[in-house]
Amino acid sequence: MAQHYDFLIVGGGMVADAAAKGIREQGADGTIGILGEEPTPPFPRPALSKKLWTDPDFTQDDAALHTDDETGAELHLGVRVASVDPERHEVTTADGETFGYGRLLLATGGHPTRVDGLEPGDRVLYFRTLSDYRRLRELAADDPHVVVVGGGYIGSEIASALVQHGCTVTLVHPGEVLGDHVFPASLARSYEGLFTQAGVRLRPGLRVEGGEQTGDGVTLRLSDGSALDADAVVLGLGITPAGDVAGAAVQRSDDGGIVVDEHLATSAPDVWAAGDVAEYPDRILGRRRVEHVDNAETMGATVGRIMAGSDETYDHTPMYYSDVFDHGYEAVGTASTDLETVLDAAGDGYVVYYLDDDAVRGVLMWDVFSETGVDAARELLARGTRPDDASELVGTVR
């Protein structure tokens, strides 16, 4: 056995950083090892599509988390884990190296969802990592034509960032109006207008069905049969949870995540899971998996303390946010126009309520930023009810 750690963390993202710091916060002085598949140390992913583009005085060094310096954790980067053996308390890497552990955290996150027939490459970026950001900044320096694929928060943030840096940007997305899967119709039209006014070319109602990368460009095949040429392509199509690293060693969720209890423990002894990969019992919203930074940071710190001896439970309902141009939103719960919506004007912004037949399931605050607003949204969701007349929600959250 090459090495043994009292606390071993599989995954090198924000959860790993927060967990290592949580272990030390609890007072444990045991050894910590972090096995990261990416070639770079833990880094705050939101900065990759937000502040590193929008704040010229904010650098990669400013964003760095300094996990090893602050916790004494030993980082093993560029390491892909192949299997976990809870009985032997061992983890084996794809290269055949074995690590022993006393307590193990699976913080494997997820891998970007890919388009069949479009392989990642020097000019095709499934955007998620610091390496992806660095390569995109290199490409953006030449003011290229970049096709961004995906109308979610990663795709929209990257399109916003690139067009403000002088790139020609085409945004391909499946909706009729950009953002119509999140925003009610009138707000979606305003949201889309931010992009068209900035010069982003929109290709709505389309999906990418494949493509080829040449030496100096990429040709995409679209679902309407047309082709689209670009200097580079950036794809933001969500992630697939990387729960397969544990195989049958732990209970898996239907979507490939890892099932945990209120203490973030898996079904295997001395094995916990946290972050994007963990399906946990939210005290307000029920069992779910959450792929956002508030969850990563808070759940990571909590699981670190628990692994180090705390008897606490994870009782935080996370929020999430997005920023484009000079606008943005914060949200709690499910923000989807598949639900009934109520649009409430609030000063220069809006509050959107999302309801099903039984309860309010989500709240989104567009250009309404306040900690009390997020807390009020959580309180509303915790009631587990809805008024008979949905319009009575107007003014509830400010």
Results as ranks from 00 to 15, higher is better:
Ile9Ala: 03
Gly11His: 05
Val15Leu: 07
Ala16Leu: 07
Ala20Cys: 09
Gln26Phe: 08
Asp29His: 13
Pro39Gly: 10
Thr40Phe: 15
Pro41Met: 13
Leu48His: 13
Lys50Glu: 10
Asp57Val: 15
Thr59Asp: 12
Gln60Gly: 12
Leu65Arg: 09
Glu74His: 13
Leu77Glu: 09
Val84Trp: 08
Pro86Gln: 08
Glu87Lys: 15
Val91Trp: 02
Thr92Glu: 14
Asp95Val: 07
Gly100Val: 06
Val115Arg: 01
Asp116Tyr: 00
Glu119Gly: 01
Pro120Ser: 09
Asp122Glu: 14
Arg128Trp: 09
Ala140Glu: 08
Pro144Arg: 09
His145Leu: 11
Val147Tyr: 04
Gly151Ser: 05
Ser160Pro: 06
Leu162Asp: 03
Val163Ser: 08
Gly166Ile: 06
Cys167Phe: 06
Thr168Asn: 07
Val172Trp: 02
Gly179Ile: 01
Asp180Glu: 11
Leu194Ala: 00
Gln197His: 00
Ala198Phe: 01
Thr219Tyr: 03
Leu220Pro: 02
Asp224Val: 07
Gly225Tyr: 10
Ala230Lys: 05
Ala230Glu: 03
Asp231Leu: 04
Val234Phe: 06
Val234Gly: 06
Gly236Val: 09
Ile239Gly: 05
Ala248Met: 03
Val250Lys: 08
Gln251Phe: 05
Asp254Val: 14
Asp254Tyr: 11
Asp254Phe: 13
Ile258Pro: 08
Ala265Glu: 15
Ala265Trp: 09
Trp272Phe: 14
Val277Gly: 07
Pro281Cys: 13
Arg283Gln: 15
Arg283Asn: 15
Arg283Ser: 15
Glu291Lys: 10
Glu291Leu: 10
Ala296Leu: 12
Gly300Trp: 10
Ala301Pro: 07
Tyr314Thr: 13
Asp315Pro: 10
Asp315Thr: 15
Thr317Asp: 05
Tyr320Ala: 07
Tyr320Ser: 10
Tyr320Lys: 07
Asp323Ser: 07
Phe325Lys: 07
Val332Cys: 11
Ala335Val: 12
Ser336Cys: 03
Thr337Val: 02
Asp338Arg: 13
Thr341Asp: 00
Thr341Gly: 00
Val342Arg: 02
Leu343Cys: 00
Asp348Phe: 01
Leu364Met: 11
Met365Phe: 02
Trp366Cys: 00
Thr372Asp: 13
Gly373Trp: 04
Asp375Val: 11
Ala376Ile: 00
Ala376Cys: 04
Thr385Glu: 12
Glu392Pro: 01
Leu393Gly: 01
Val394Trp: 00
Gly395Leu: 05
Thr396Cys: 02
Arg398His: 14
